[in-house]
Design a protein around this nucleic acid. Structure first.
Length: 928
DNA sequence: GAGCTGGAAGGACCG
DNA sequence: CTCGGTCCTTCCAGC
């Protein structure tokens, strides 16, 4: 179960409606006049990439596995190349019917996992190419996204507008929408998993296969080969879930169910179900299995299925109600123009639409529903690719939002000079804005790009990312909200990328490429709206921490674009949590020899005298290998600071740094996020990272790794051990695949590749290495500290497993080449999109990398199938077999207690979810 | 009057 | 199945 939960979360799917970004982009660009000109140059826009939905990225990383490396060396890239959308959508393209699926605006849903994996690579390559005739796929076109949809991940946006309405119409609509929109899930899954089956997408609900398809693949894994996705997860989970809990990890609200369609058939929800969710599935075994499974035939089948689906999607897939809506709306649809244009690909891109507008307009205005409806109608239009706008981000070349990118590369470094406050109450659509995010010391966050000496202004992108242990990705339940008014000095534009609202802020040379972020608020989307989306695996409940994620795309002489990303410290966005949950903003030390004993000062909020500080060593799969309570000095405890004594590590003989996590606990449900901490070998003050040992990112990055390094190391060890060097990370971005490999082993059948996958996890990796990748590094300020996220990384897994899933993707071979090179390829490479210039070096890679290598770094996440889930939540002392030892090679590992780690994100629900998942898995999985 | 806040009511979820 | 604690979302009211 636990695993499941995690997975589920992990799995998030990104739904992307691909609007075609291009269109969007274009539109955006249009909108943003300012940007375009200036920026554009800088930005890579070009090609095709488009957009690819970010989703892919992650996936990509992981995905790789599936796809033959060769094929897509760069999963990511491929995707991009192919046309970002293309791939995903493209898949859809033709329906069985003959109708060009693609055309229709597709909604892609990508689970991160799935998508990535599937889409990109797998899908991509395969399907798209094969299946779709080139024609269909239009590069740009490829994926269409529903306009509105896109807006955010959720349609939820639905509600956007108004509160009132929100529920009524929107909400419902939204919910429905979501459903469909995300429908893909099921179909997809199935296809891949069981090719044959999948096709069925027939279910109306399922709707969008394609995206799914992609997803599916990924997702499916989780399902384990055995069960068909549907059956297994979907339905059951679904159903079950719903009843008491929402199937999904989700807790969808009852009402939503009630009112709306009740049940989506399990099918539909394929996604929904935890199982379904790519992440979940992905995880270990499934992954492997799946991947494996995807043989050509399977693939073909899947494709077919997808294809079919595609057509279906809208129509068929949509839940009845949905359909209704659609039908009803059709008119409206027409009316709506898609403001954005995104959707419409063809339609004249609305130059007009202001990003904001467009995104929301639909929704708010009611368009939302319509849009969905609309989509079907306009298929072709969608198909049309829109010209990319200079703007950018949309550009194909740009990495998806879920890709893990480094914060610095070469001379460039994107840094958060002033971190945002740790708490910011997000506003609902039904509420008025609650203002811009502020800095803890007053004022607003400040971001600066260092090392950029050109005269061209660049565009800084800002979106709301997750703050859990998993890889950084756009947050499904929160969107950035542009604040305007007298008090706002910074100009900005809103754009929607892959369902994620992105605020574009100009970085001007005259301002030293520095921007005061006083124009960014945080919008909370209703959990019910988001969770109902097909494919959405994350749970909103208690998933209230976010990070501001900043990206900048620096044009390189080579023509490529170097993308840098940095994420802020976590921000608690709920009303309550901000008041009650302990929050660690900084820590005086982020590493210390295993002997412990040193006092570490934690700075943050809500610390109590009874606050406990728990150090945890997690296995890749998220299980707690070791857990101990650190001593705290109550006398020195203040609400904003806590002094703890670093406890000795369980294994005093480690030869390489071991990354662990710790959190502050004020009570059963009041825990801070995990903070990273690294134990250093006793006698070795400074450790270099050697690839060998753990998973260091470095290795990966390095040339070598490639993917699979054969080394199968124990997961744990690897994971655990993190290389100290962040630097290495650079590369980091791309973690070495190897790690995965290690993991992989675990996977039963998985092919080596698969293994790799796990590693893919960029995030995990990142954390340690600090690769940045996923994790945003804290901006200068408290880099280490911030980590909050990192911890996550650690286990990406807890929920983490999902990552694994991802991994697979990455796995994909290409990676091998990986990291560096590979990455690029993957990313960029491929085809179309202009690959990043090598120059970019790492950065370049970055994008790619992430996908590809992600793994490396950190903790790899993959959860070893074996271990994982079964373990009871409670801590049990276990040994982690291999892994542990690895970490400390020879040393006998101290017995470790393994616990699941439920909580990272939102522990609670996660736990729940995990349980569910685990159960499923357990039943399914053979392993243990 | 609009926007930003803080607080809290109500109901859904969970254990 | 009930009960109590949480959490989410919507409202209100004040500045």
């Amino acid at each position: 179960m636990t695993g499941l939960e995690d997975q589920e979360f992990d799995f998030e799917f990104l739904f992307e409606f691909n609007q075609r970004d291009e269109g969007a982009a274009a539109a955006a660009s249009e909108h943003y006049g300012y940007a375009s000109s200036n920026v554009s140059p800088a930005l890579p826009l070009p090609t095709a990439h488009s957009t690819l939905p970010a989703p892919c990225h992650n996936l990509q990383t992981s995905t790789p596995g599936i796809i033959p490396p060769a094929d897509h060396p760069s999963g990511y890239g491929a995707a991009l190349d192919s046309g970002p959308a293309g791939y995903f959508l493209s898949s859809g393209h033709t329906r069985p019917d003959g109708a060009p699926a693609l055309e229709s605006p597709r909604i892609e849903i990508t689970s991160c996992l799935g998508l990535y994996h599937n889409n990109n690579q797998f899908f991509h390559d395969v399907e798209v190419e094969d299946v779709l005739p080139s024609s269909k796929r239009s590069p740009s076109t490829a994926t269409l996204s529903l306009p509105s949809l896109e807006a955010y991940r959720d349609p939820s946006c639905l509600s956007p507008a108004s509160s009132l309405s929100s529920r009524s119409c929107n909400s419902e609509a939204s919910s429905y929408e979501s459903n469909y929109s995300y429908p893909y899930a099921s179909p997809q899954t199935s296809p891949w998993q069981s090719p044959c089956v999948s096709p069925k997408t027939t279910d109306p609900e399922e709707g969008f296969p394609r995206g799914l398809g992609a997803c599916t693949l990924l997702g499916s894994p989780r399902h384990s080969p055995s069960t068909s996705p549907r059956a297994s997860v979907t339905e059951e989970s679904w159903l079950g879930a719903r009843s008491s809990r929402p199937a999904s990890p989700c807790n969808k609200r009852k009402y939503s169910l009630n009112g709306r369609q009740p049940p989506y058939s399990p099918h539909h929800s394929p996604t929904p179900s935890p199982h379904g969710s790519p992440r979940v599935s992905v995880t270990d075994d499934s992954w492997l299995g799946n991947t494996t499974q995807y043989t050509s035939s399977a693939i073909v089948a899947a494709i077919n299925a997808l294809t079919t689906d595609s057509s279906l999607d809208l129509g068929d897939g949509v839940p009845v109600k949905s359909r209704k809506t659609t039908l009803e709306q059709p008119p409206s649809v027409a009316l709506k123009v898609e403001p954005v244009g995104e959707d419409l690909g063809s339609p004249p891109p609305p130059a007009d639409f202001a990003p904001e507008d467009f995104s929301f307009q639909h929704i708010r205005k009611g368009g939302f529903c319509d849009q969905y409806l609309a989509v079907p109608q306009h298929p072709y239009q969608w198909a049309k690719p829109k010209p990319l706008s200079p703007t950018s981000y949309m550009s194909p070349t740009l990495p998806a939002l879920d890709w893990q990118l480094p914060s610095h590369s070469g001379p460039y470094e994107l840094r958060i000079e002033v971190q945002p406050k740790s708490h910011h109450r997000a506003h609902y659509e039904t509420e008025g804005s609650r203002g811009a995010v502020k800095a803890s010391a007053g004022g607003h966050p400040i971001v600066q790009l260092h090392g950029y000496l050109e005269n061209e202004p660049l565009m800084l992108q800002l979106f709301i990312g997750t703050a859990d242990d998993r890889l950084l990705r756009p947050h499904a339940f929160y969107q950035v909200h542009r604040i305007t008014g007298k008090t706002v000095s910074t100009t900005s534009h809103e754009a929607i990328l892959s369902n994620t609202k992105v605020l574009e802020i100009p970085l001007l040379p005259e301002n030293s490429m520095r921007a005061v972020i006083d124009c960014a608020g945080i919008l909370k989307l209703r959990n019910s709206d988001i969770e109902l989306r097909k494919g959405e695996t994350d749970i909103g409940r208690k998933n209230t921490r976010v990070r501001l994620v900043f990206r900048v795309h620096v044009p390189q002489p080579s023509g490529r674009t170097l993308s840098l990303q940095v994420a802020s410290n976590p921000i608690e966005c709920s009303q309550r949590s901000a008041q009650e949950l302990p929050l660690v903003e900084k820590q005086s030390t982020d590493s210390y020899p295993v002997v412990g004993g040193k006092k570490m000062v934690l700075s943050g909020h809500n610390f109590l005298q009874d606050s406990k500080v728990i150090f945890v060593e997690k296995a890749p799969d998220g299980h707690h290998v070791w857990e101990t309570e650190a001593k705290t000095d109550r006398d020195l405890c203040k609400p904003n600071s806590l002094v703890v004594e670093i406890p000795p590590f369980r294994n005093q003989r480690i030869t390489s740094p071991v990354h662990v996590s710790f959190y502050v606990c004020n009570g059963k449900r009041k825990r801070s996020q995990y903070q990273r901490f690294t134990y250093l070998p006793a006698n070795v003050p400074i450790i270099k990272t050697e690839p060998t040992d753990d998973y260091e990112p470095a290795p990966t990055c390095g040339p070598v790794s490639q993917g699979l390094s054969p080394l199968p190391r124990p997961y744990y060890s690897q994971q655990l051990a993190m290389p100290p060097d962040p630097g290495s990370c650079l590369v980091a971005g791309f973690p070495p695949c190897p790690q995965r490999s290690t993991l992989m082993p675990a996977a039963p059948g998985a092919s080596p590749k698969l293994h790799d996958l796990s590693p893919a996890y960029t995030k995990g990796v990142a954390s340690p290495g600090h690769c940045h990748l996923g994790l945003p590094q804290p901006a200068g300020e408290a880099p280490a500290i911030q980590d909050v996220p990192r911890p996550v990384a650690t286990h990406p897994g807890s929920p983490g497993q999902p990552p694994p899933a991802l991994l697979p993707q990455q796995v994909s071979a290409p990676p091998s080449s990986s990291c560096p090179p590979g990455l690029e390829h993957s990313l960029c490479p491929s085809s179309p999109s202009p690959p990043l210039p090598p120059a970019a070096q790492e950065p370049t890679c970055l994008q790619p990398c992430s996908p590809a290598c992600p793994p490396a770094t950190g903790r790899p996440q993959h959860p070893p199938p074996t271990v994982r889930r079964d373990e009871s939540p409670t801590a049990r002392p276990r040994l982690l077999p291999e892994a542990h030892e690895d970490s400390s090679p020879n040393l006998a590992p101290i017995p470790v207690t393994v616990k699941r780690e439920p909580e990272e994100l939102d522990q609670l629900y996660l736990d729940d979810v995990n349980e569910i998942i685990r159960n499923d898995l357990s039943s399914t999985s053979t392993h243990s």
